[in-house]
Each structure stands twice: as structure tokens, then as C-alpha cells.
Amino acid sequence: MPEPILIKEFHFLAGCISLVGLVIAFAAQKGSKLHIMGGKSFVVTMLILTSSGLWMSISREVLFTVFLSLTSFHALLTGWSAAAKNGIARAVTKYSAGSSALITGGGIWGGQYTANTPNGLLNGLPAGAFYFIAGIAALLMLFDLIYANTRSPSKVMRITRHLWRMGFSSFLATSIFFFGNNHVLPEALRTPLVLSAPVIGVIVLTAFYTMRVLFFSFSTPYKHETD
């Protein structure tokens, strides 16, 4: 599959905007116009980021990042659907376990394929790397099944799912970019501190706001969820 000339530039730009949108969505009052604006910009740019990342992974024949991109895309959509109230969101929730099951199966297949290569490596990675991503997808599938079969999820349950899945999606995408595709950055910025800071920042923000809602939900009122 050919790689469009400008796809790396769009990928980089989408990644930068998505990080800004994530910070705004986390920091703004939940349910406010600023929160919704930041959240929508995050979702749109993350869709571009994960789609372009998937395209580049396929065109470069890097199977591991194919599965990472698919996992990030899955976490993004299921996180969005937990806060949205429309038919598409309900359909995403209903079929989410099927999606994560496919990624799980793909990861297992990737591990078996890699184990059978002459040197036991694929793109420099051992079979265990693929089994690891399969395990993550299996855990997502378990949570998908629980959530989809909960008759009336509480607000705390929905918002917690919304927050950690959005953050997890961003964590995967930023990890792929800053640790695997950072060649588009100026050489002066390709230092361990600069490359790890956005990834660590996403982890800290996601953990803080998820725990805040999970254990101190009275201090984080939501006026309404997104449509």
C-alpha cells in the first residue's frame, strides 16, 4: 500500500492537536462548552491520528503497530460512546466486545506467526510482544462485555469508562509516535526527556481525573454528556 506524501505531516499535526484537546477536556469543567469543544477536537484528531497511523503501519508492513493502532482506535470509540447518547454510541457499545475479540485473535495469530519465523522475530520484536497486546485486548473485551451487559450503567461508571479509555487511546498513540515515529521531529527534540514527557503527561492526567471521578465524583459534576 503506497504512503501518501503528506500523511506524516497530517499525522504529526493531528497528534499535537489531540494532546491539546485532551488537556482541555480533562482540565475544563465537565459538561461545559470548553470541555465539549476540547473533547470533540480530541476525538476528531485522534480518529485522524489512529487512521493515519494504521495506514503507515500497513504500508511499512509493521504488524505490531497495526494492532496498536487498532487498539487505540477501539479505545477511542468505546470511550466516546460511554459519554455520548445517540444510536451510533449504542451500537458501538453493543458490538464493542466483538471488536476487541478480533484484536485479541489478531494478536494471538501475530504471536504464533512470529514464533514460527526463522529467528523468532518480526520487525525486531519477539512473539511475546504480540501476545502482550492480545492480553490487553482481551482485558478490554472483558470490560466491554461487562459494560454492554450492565442494564443501566451509573453515571460514575460511564464517565470513568469515558475518561480512562480516552486517555488509554491517547497513551497508545503518543507512545507509538514519540517512541517509534519521532524521526519527523527536529533532532534537538529527540531526547529522552522530551520524548517521554507527553507520554508520562497523558498517564498522569488520565490517572488523576479517572481516580477523581471514581472516588470523588461529588467534586466533578457533569452537567450533561455529549451528544
Rank of each mutant, 00 (worst) to 15 (best):
G39C: 11
Q29A: 13
R190K: 14
L47F: 11
A101T: 14
F10D: 04
F42I: 12
V43E: 07
N119H: 12
F179R: 08
W164I: 14
P186F: 03
T104L: 06
F132N: 01
A91P: 00
P118W: 08
P126G: 07
L68R: 01
S219H: 09
L70S: 00
L77W: 08
L6Q: 09
A188P: 02
T93Q: 08
A91V: 13
T114L: 00
A14M: 08
G105V: 04
I159L: 08
K8H: 09
L68A: 14
Y113S: 08
T65Y: 04
L77V: 07
L142E: 01
R158F: 01
G39Y: 10
F177D: 04
L6P: 00
R165H: 10
T160V: 13
D144H: 14
T71I: 09
I200F: 02
F42L: 15
F130Q: 00
S59E: 09
I103C: 07
V44I: 15
A127Q: 10
F26G: 06
T45F: 13
P221A: 04
F208M: 10
Q29Y: 05
N149Q: 13
F12M: 12
Y131G: 01
V62Y: 08
W109R: 05
R151F: 06
L185D: 05
G106N: 04
V44S: 06
G110R: 01
L125Q: 10
V199N: 06
G105A: 08
C16F: 14
K94N: 05
L76N: 07
P153T: 14
I48Y: 06
L139R: 04
Q112A: 11
Y131S: 01
E61T: 13
A188M: 12
Y222C: 06
H224R: 15
L172M: 14
V194I: 15
W55A: 14
V202M: 08
I133F: 02
T114R: 00
K155F: 03
A28M: 08
P186Y: 03
I133A: 03
A83G: 07
F10H: 12
L195M: 12
M56N: 03
F168Y: 13
F12G: 04
Y222P: 02
P198Q: 03
I48S: 05
H74I: 01
V66K: 01
G107T: 09
S99D: 01
G201K: 11
G128L: 02
V202S: 03
L49H: 11
T50F: 01
F168T: 06
A137P: 03
S154I: 13
A129P: 01
V156L: 08
V62L: 14
F215A: 08
E3W: 04
F215D: 02
A207I: 15
P186K: 10
G15S: 09
